[in-house]
Design a binder for these strands. Structure first.
Lengths: 340, 340
DNA sequence: CTGAAAGCGCTTACAG
DNA sequence: CTGAAAGCGCTTACAG
């Protein structure tokens, strides 16, 4: 097995150059010759050597996909959508999962992508300015999802508008005592998602004339973090009647905290999440739906265009979101919820 | 940028061969020479060309990870664990997500892995006999998780024993009318997981003297499939008092069906799943926990050993499972549940 | 310890 | 339309 192009050439009675052309469909090759080459290649079970081809051509037919947490639904779904588009285009996907600090530091230090890929897809991996520079030094197209990295093609949603719709929903239900579970730790440049959702929370309160009522708790965008945040809210001196949680997974954790406290979402306290996770429906969680598959797909398609040489200016693609109302949000009850 | 080994050689005043040796730490190179080479490489920001190196050496420093559904928690978690081990060992991971029929057919037809990887990791992708052969033709080590593919290193759990523990739990609680949601469609060779869990279900009933009480519904291992299956059970002429669901995600769907029917898990009907999904706790679902991260990690470590030339016979690694009891299972109530 | 040389398996102008 | 030749950037016996 593993016969070479030269063997195919010998078998077909032509030169290696002709085999190369015939098999890739480039240059002028007579139909008869092409047929001979193709059947010789088939007979020998010939497979091109990607390394040799890559060395000679200078491109790799491979892209790098960088992601912080494959194991989380959001990222796994993005990967799934992107990988599909790329695979169907005959492009291989190198996966780098670098959510933890050291993994990420090492990734940017060693940059295993160097000379290995034709393009890079960064999926909601917070990037510092110097990290953006490092990626740019790769000298290949970079497409990002959920970031604002200068010089890259950006795919995302309007986080502020989406979060605002969640807040308006709660306000329309009569809630005025609304808490926010999100992230307030300083985040790397360009990863504005948590901040935008928080700003929308603040702005909505402000707009409703209850700006001084802001109650924000960090949840770290994990299930456990969401649970801790909600537990903190439950043990605070002021119990909100509703909570806007910046991600569904944090909201799942919050639901667990409620269950443990014997409280029923919707009835005792309203909860709205963000994402429309696969399981939001199972948990009866109201949420802001964002098109995750579509974002992964769009990003991959842009990447394909870039790999094929599209010279346009960096693009910005903003996809739509919408509210999905379920049992976890309900009108504020007249009597209850007044703790202060 | 992208300087070559030759430039480093010139800069360091040595031959390319010496640079190659010095940088990779093979062969005899004097300390002084090595230092000169290293600093020249650093000064030139030299990065080896993977393609050239791979072509010259015949290995790729890359492994292929094949998986049916990245977007599902179980697979995403396996990937995460395996990718980490491999990345930390300096090995790149090519991801192939081929759950759908066509994608999978095309994958095995084109075998994009050929000449591209040093080894393959197959994560719970049902393989037919001919597919196993195709992988073997790759002539690289193959490690599998959750399969019984001959000639490969297998990592997994004892599905029969694990499922038996779930059944025993239900039987101990006094349930005798126990249904099973799993998969009964013919599955490809070697993917015995669904069958083993089903067999354990049947065997347990048999052992308990209620063999004629088997009630099996297919759920396709998806959330929606689980919901449909449970809905079917709920509309059947015989309502079980407990259900063993062969995966947590199907159980989540089943929970949704229960909620829609106004039934409460644990009180009205007992439910036990399989996996201990991240969200099983949030949903208060009793389940059989299997060590997913550990399986991914173990598989990757075996893969590493193989890549490094371990000539041992194919190995079989079986990891432990354990019951996790939560609110979705409860004792059979004396009066209720008698429908037939 | 170090270098010259061949070779890994393709691709691509350049001729014809 | 087809071929000879150089080149892509490493690695590895083989000498010394």
């Amino acid at each position: 097995m593993a016969s070479s192009l030269d063997e195919v050439a010998r078998q077909a009675g032509v030169s290696p150059a002709t085999v190369s052309r015939a098999l890739r469909g480039v240059g002028r090759v007579s139909e008869a010759t092409r047929a001979r080459v193709v059947s010789a290649a088939a007979a020998l079970d010939y497979v091109i050597s990607p390394a040799a081809s890559s060395l000679a051509r200078g491109t790799t037919g491979t892209v790098g996909v960088v992601v912080p947490y494959v194991e989380r639904w959001f990222f796994a779904t993005l990967i799934s959508a992107a990988e599909r588009v790329l695979r169907e285009a005959g492009i291989s996907v190198l996966l780098y999962n670098v959510g933890d600090q050291e993994g990420r530091a090492r990734f940017f230090h060693e940059l295993p992508l160097r000379r290995r890929v034709d393009a890079v897809l960064v999926l909601s991996l917070p990037l510092s300015a110097s990290e953006v520079d490092l990626l740019r030094d790769l000298a290949v197209p970079v497409v990002t999802v959920g970031l604002d990295a200068p010089g890259t093609d950006c795919v995302g949603i309007d986080d502020h508008a989406a979060a605002t719709s969640a807040m308006r929903h709660l306000l329309h239900l009569g809630h005025r005592d609304i808490a926010f579970i999100g992230e307030d730790t300083p985040v790397p440049l360009g990863f504005t998602t948590p901040l935008r959702r928080r700003d929308a929370y603040r702005d909505a309160l402000h707009e409703a004339g209850i700006a001084d009522g802001a109650l924000e708790v960090p949840g770290g965008f994990t299930i456990d973090g969401g649970e801790r945040a909600m537990t903190r809210l439950l043990s605070g001196h002021r119990l909100p009647t509703a909570v806007f949680v910046a991600s569904d997974e944090m909201a799942f954790g919050a639901l667990r905290a409620l269950r443990r406290a014997g409280l029923r979402p919707g009835r005792d306290i309203s909860l709205i999440g963000f994402d429309d996770h696969d399981l939001a429906d199972v948990l009866d969680l109201s949420t802001v739906a964002q098109p995750v598959l579509e974002q992964g797909k769009a990003a991959a398609q842009i990447l394909l265009r870039r790999v094929r040489g599209d010279p346009d200016e960096p693009s910005r693609t903003v996809l739509d979101t919408h509210l999905v109302l379920r049992g976890s949000t309900a009108p504020q009850r007249e009597a209850a919820g007044e703790h202060d």
